[in-house]
Simulated assay, not measured.
Amino acid sequence: MITAYVGVGSNLERYRHIEAGIKELSLLGDELRLSTIYECPAQGFDSHPFFNLVVELKTSLSLNDFQQSLKKVEYRWGRDADAKKYQDRTLDMDIILFGDVISPSSPAVPRPDIYQYPFVIQPLYELCPELNIPGTDLSIKKVWQEAALLEQLKPIPLWFSVK
């Protein structure tokens, strides 16, 4: 089993889609652990705020099969197949880390978002602060200590139960 970390986000019908995304992830793996869910502004475009979190889970799927499964979940919950990077999302699911796998493309893991977005590094810090990012000497904690804009994140109480 591989330990995967998946970023989950939504800015359209956020409560409905975040809950649906977590339930769908429970079908793709076991031992789910959720970070705090955070509300934060849209990044790179002007729109509704997002709910974002990171989910840790164990999966027996390969990286490519896991990625394809996440895409199917996104489409099932209303994401356009030709969705652009900076636009509203019903459900967005990105593999942040996948065990110690290093993949430069499609999907790129470790995902560069770790270094760019507070809504990725803060939840990772909650789940696995001592974990070293594969291919680097950096721990999640070290990246978190140097992160900016963490104050943009507003914690949202969990409104559903996790299997």
Rank of each mutant, 00 (worst) to 15 (best):
M1K: 11
I2A: 04
T3N: 10
V6C: 00
G7T: 06
S10R: 10
S10N: 14
S10E: 13
S10Y: 09
R14C: 00
H17V: 00
A20F: 04
A20D: 08
E24D: 12
L25A: 01
L25V: 00
L28D: 08
E31L: 07
L32F: 03
R33T: 02
L34I: 00
L34R: 00
S35R: 07
T36A: 14
I37G: 02
E39T: 01
C40Q: 15
A42H: 05
A42C: 06
A42T: 03
Q43P: 06
Q43K: 12
Q43D: 13
G44H: 11
F45C: 04
H48G: 13
H48D: 15
H48N: 15
P49T: 13
F50H: 05
F50I: 04
L53Q: 11
V54E: 11
V54K: 07
K58W: 01
K58C: 05
K58L: 05
K58N: 05
K58H: 03
S62Q: 09
L63W: 00
L63V: 02
N64I: 09
N64R: 13
D65M: 04
D65K: 06
Q67T: 07
Q68D: 12
S69E: 10
S69C: 12
S69I: 07
L70I: 03
K71T: 05
K71G: 02
K71C: 04
K72R: 10
E74V: 02
E74P: 02
R76I: 03
R76K: 14
W77C: 05
G78T: 12
G78D: 12
G78I: 12
R79T: 04
R79P: 03
D80Q: 13
D82C: 09
D82N: 13
K84M: 02
K85Q: 11
Y86C: 03
D88T: 09
D88N: 14
D88R: 07
R89W: 01
R89N: 05
L91D: 10
D92G: 08
D94W: 01
I95N: 01
I102R: 14
S103G: 05
S105W: 06
S106E: 11
S106F: 08
S106M: 11
P107T: 08
P107N: 08
A108S: 09
P110M: 02
P112I: 01
P112F: 00
Y115I: 05
Y115L: 08
Q116A: 07
Y117I: 01
Y117G: 01
P118Q: 12
P118C: 10
F119S: 00
V120Y: 03
V120I: 14
I121P: 07
I121Q: 07
I121N: 08
Q122F: 05
L124T: 04
L124W: 00
Y125A: 05
E126R: 13
N132S: 11
T136A: 12
W144I: 01
W144H: 13
W144N: 10
Q145M: 14
A147D: 09
A148T: 10
A148H: 14
K154N: 15
P155G: 13
P155T: 10
P157C: 11
W159L: 15
K163P: 15
